[in-house]
């Protein structure tokens, strides 16, 4: 590529940078704008009179005496007790990631080390399960969960999310374990280790990069889920995303849409931090699946 880049004409180089700038704007501007707007009052963020009000904060100044206000955050976090939903989300994510990695690692390892035909059948079944829209399964959960009286609580949702997570986790860890040479654990077995001991002593120490990458995606799935959490959690146990959806139902009528804006910014912030720290792992995780496929 070095030769090519030397030959690039000036006009082409300018075109490349313009295109990149446009893409950056498209990708990032909505977030910057919403972050900025979340510190305004509704009449500035949704400005009928003049869109520059959102920049200058004319109405916000009129109401609070300064161009920025944390009224939206105060409303969402204190008045509407959004912090409860934040705690619920982190409980759900923590347990989903831990459980799903534990059982997924064992399963993915077994799939990668067994040469029988049923591994393929299992992997294809997992692929089909991955393709099922989770919401199609929800109507299957409702009746049994009501009957057993487990609807609406966090543990049920955690288990369901773990199960829905499994197909993806299995595919990812399967392809990851295949890149760890079989000779490693086989030599341990020759030395007299059982399969499980070989896994514990030889594989576990070297598997962390793949497990962390898979864990990131499990986290994203649990964090971003709307279909399952909105259907399976009662009002008191809601996580952030269904709570934001619930805000929309109530805030549009009450005129407190800024609560929802503040809640959206609050819920998006952890994801930004995640990408900031784990950009490399996310990229490698996305591509790991592709190279196999």
């Amino acid at each position: 590529m070095t030769i090519a880049s030397k030959r690039r004409s000036l006009s082409l180089r300018i075109a490349i940078y313009i295109f990149a700038a446009i893409w950056l704007l498209v990708a990032a501007f909505p977030f910057v704008w919403t972050l900025w707007g979340s510190f305004k009052v509704e009449l500035d963020f949704f400005s009928v009179a003049n869109w520059t009000n959102a920049l200058s904060g004319e109405r916000t100044i009129a109401e609070y005496g300064q161009p920025f206000t944390d009224a939206g955050y105060e409303g969402a976090w204190i008045k509407e007790e959004f912090w409860r939903n934040v705690i619920n989300t982190f409980i759900v994510c923590f347990f989903v990631v831990c459980t799903s990695l534990t059982i997924g690692t064992l399963g993915g390892y077994a799939l990668s080390r067994s040469g029988y035909r049923y591994t393929l059948i299992l992997l294809i079944a997992a692929l089909i399960f991955r393709a099922m829209p989770p919401i199609t399964l929800v109507s299957g959960y409702m009746l049994p969960f009501f009957e057993w009286n487990v609807w609406g609580i966090l543990p049920t949702t955690i288990i369901v999310l773990v199960a829905i997570n499994q197909p993806f986790t299995l595919w990812m860890l399967h392809s990851f374990f295949q890149n760890i040479p079989k000779e490693l654990d086989e030599s341990a077995k020759v030395d007299g280790c059982s399969q499980f001991k070989a896994f514990r002593l030889v594989i576990i120490p070297v598997m962390w990069p793949g497990v962390i990458t898979t864990g990131l995606f499990s986290f994203l799935l649990a964090y971003n889920d709307f279909a399952i959490t909105s259907m399976l959690l009662s009002e008191d146990n809601r996580t952030m995303v269904p709570q934001i959806a619930a805000f929309l139902g109530t805030t549009y009528t009450e005129g407190n849409v800024m609560f929802a804006v503040a809640a959206v910014v609050s819920a998006a912030a952890p994801l930004f931090i995640l990408v900031m720290f784990f950009q490399r792992q996310i990229v490698s995780g996305l591509t790991a699946g592709a190279v196999k496929g």
């Binding site: 909505p30 977030f31 949704f46 009928v48 971003n224 990229v283």
Partner: peptide, 29 residues
Amino acid sequence: VVFFSLLPFVITPLIGALVLFWMIDSRGI
């Protein structure tokens, strides 16, 4: 560029939709 490019993808779909929806609202930017 890769960092900012990842944002629309990792963001919660509902949140991403809302962020765009508020911008295309007839009173939005």
